[in-house]
Simulated scan of single mutants.
Amino acid sequence: MAQDLTQQWLEEIQALKRQLAQKQLDLNSAWESAEKWRKLYNTEAEQRRTDAHLFQQTIASLKTEIHKLQGIDTSILADGKATAAIQAEVKQIQAVEELQAKLITVTKERDRLLQAFKTEQENHAQTRKSLTTALGDAIDSLARERAEKSEV
């Protein structure tokens, strides 16, 4: 009878060892998943920051172009020859319609880029929300596994 009891205990210990090994595998898998999501989130965030920076540069470039079209070239103004430079630019324009057409084109492009930027910001916010939710789920899963492990 003592031998049967010993055999039962040994089988119970082996079962618990298998469960512990499986829980450890599950824990490692969850950590790897969390790390993957963290890396994806950071990559996406970096891409959004890069895109935002490029859009800001494009907007600044367009503002400069508009100023040039309006005859306000800041690089020329800085060297003290503003009046002559403005007069030269005005003389190059053949008609008011040319100036208006160019201004309309630049304004449309600026509006398109602003809309694209706004869309990118919304996409970034959605991605951040999705990745944060996934990361939270992974952390909750890990916490449950740890709680189960500590109960065993």
Rank of each mutant, 00 (worst) to 15 (best):
T83L: 09
E97H: 01
R110V: 11
S141G: 14
T64I: 08
Q7P: 02
E44A: 10
A147P: 00
Q57S: 05
I86K: 14
A21P: 01
E44N: 13
H53C: 15
L77A: 15
V106C: 07
T105H: 12
K17G: 04
D140M: 06
T43N: 15
M1N: 03
I59R: 01
R144F: 09
K39G: 07
L77G: 10
S150E: 11
E46D: 05
G80R: 02
T50I: 09
N28I: 01
V152G: 00
E120N: 10
A116Q: 11
K23S: 12
V152E: 01
Q57V: 14
R38C: 10
E65M: 07
T74I: 10
R38D: 15
L10F: 15
L20H: 13
D137S: 06
Q126D: 03
T105Y: 06
L142W: 03
F117P: 00
T105S: 14
A95E: 03
L16F: 07
R112W: 01
D51V: 09
A30M: 08
D140H: 05
R49T: 05
A82G: 03
L54T: 02
L77Q: 13
F55W: 12
K36F: 02
Q8Y: 10
E151W: 07
L131C: 11
Q94W: 14
Q70E: 07
A143M: 14
A52W: 09
K149W: 04
L62Y: 08
T83W: 14
A15V: 09
Q87A: 14
A85I: 01
D73Y: 09
E46W: 11
R49L: 06
D111H: 09
R144W: 12
V90E: 04
K68C: 02
H53R: 13
R144P: 05
H124L: 07
E122M: 07
T43M: 07
T43C: 12
E65Y: 08
L10S: 01
Q115T: 06
M1W: 10
E151L: 13
E89S: 04
T64G: 15
V90Q: 08
D73V: 05
T43L: 12
A138P: 00
K17R: 10
L62R: 04
A147K: 07
